[in-house]
Design a protein around this nucleic acid. Structure first.
Length: 134
DNA sequence: TAGGCCATCTGGTCCT
DNA sequence: AGGACCAGATGGCCTA
């Protein structure tokens, strides 16, 4: 009973049927990995301006270790950069909130919908970047 | 030539 | 039961 059902069921098949089943499983796995790569490419596309901007290109070695300038981002580099970018956006938003708070409270400025959203942390994902850490 | 990156195959496990 | 997900193994390609 220690054997997994699929392996047991597989052994009861004829060699031809086993081969056909293997082909189907391999094909599904290939498709799954291809979908994953499509998603990775989409993420790369978002990250490209962040990585290859002229200002960061020269200093990319210190800021983005493992990222070779002019080359396609590896999967691991894409994920690490995306994480760093999200953290950066989170802290930028926090700073914006702080400045907006100083402005509106210190000067009695009437807050519009955008500033109200920022001040009240209307976007939980960004207001708490740690929620989306791996 | 060594090391990094990647695609593919495979068997096991989890989920519906 | 079948499909999705995962991790290990393997071999190919490319670059320093």
């Amino acid at each position: 009973s220690g054997q997994p059902r699929s392996a047991k069921a597989q052994r009861e098949l004829s060699p031809e049927e086993q081969q056909e089943l293997r082909r189907k499983i391999n094909s599904r796995e290939r498709k799954r990995m291809q979908d994953l790569n499509i998603a990775m490419d989409a993420l790369r596309e978002v990250m490209v301006p962040y990585v290859s901007s002229p200002s960061s290109a020269s200093s990319s070695q210190s800021q983005n270790p493992g990222v070779a300038p002019g080359r396609r981002l590896s999967k691991i580099s894409t994920l690490i950069l995306a994480r760093n970018y999200i953290l950066l956006l989170g802290s930028s938003l926090q700073e914006m909130r702080r400045l907006l708070g100083e402005l509106t409270m210190g000067m009695g400025i009437n807050t519009g919908p955008v500033s109200r959203l920022l001040l009240t942390g209307g976007w939980p994902l960004i207001s708490s970047p740690s929620h989306i850490l791996l």
